[in-house]
Design a protein around this nucleic acid. Structure first.
Lengths: 103, 103
DNA sequence: CGGGATCCCCGACGATACTG
DNA sequence: CAGTATCGTCGGGGATCCCG
């Protein structure tokens, strides 16, 4: 699945996430700062995400496309599963497993 | 998300898929053949998947665990989304996704 | 047959300098 | 500020050999 290729890349999900939580479109710099990455990676990812029509670029910056938003929506259940899975997997880890964290 | 790290790896999903469709547990060789990969990768992935408790290893071979099956279930919607997404995006686009494999 | 060990290659990433 | 170019590094993955 090509989707996983894309989403598995270094800052892909992070970028989508930052854009999703931004009140307004983010500039290149703003994104670079928010995702804490470098121009090269950010630029590459941005290109791929735009090719995939998951984000859009306008004069005022980058924003999620409808498709991007729908992807995020589909990703949520997976995210939930992953959390439960991770929680089940590290019962012996420095135990803060008990208090479910919400952010 | 660590899940994506794992699933994004070279044969992870493929292995889960092959195991899911197998009528009975698959042996190492059978899996290697089914997924068309090499011992090194297969072994590595198998170790990770076992660590993640997504697959189980018994005397008669490898099989999906309950967790593995549940993951696959959660993955289905994503898969559906990905198909629609791919279909919408690359009806005529030059497919640069995967280069032809030599065998 | 199962599956570790090895070797090599290539692409992704990180950092940063640089141009418009 | 936006984005590109360059360069070194690092790790994953392909192929193979081989032992238990």
């Amino acid at each position: 699945m090509a989707l996983l290729d894309l989403m598995g890349r270094r800052m892909a999900l992070r970028i989508l996430w930052e854009l999703a939580n931004a009140p307004a479109p983010l500039t290149f710099r703003a994104l670079q700062d928010a995702a804490d990455t470098n121009p090269g990676v950010l630029n590459g990812r941005l290109r791929e995400l735009r090719d995939a029509r998951l984000v859009e670029h306008e004069a005022d910056g980058y924003r999620l496309s409808d498709g991007g938003r729908s992807l995020l929506a589909v990703l949520l259940p997976l995210h939930g599963w992953a959390e439960a899975w991770a929680a089940a997997g590290k019962p012996s880890a420095p135990g803060r497993v008990r208090s479910p964290r919400k952010r």
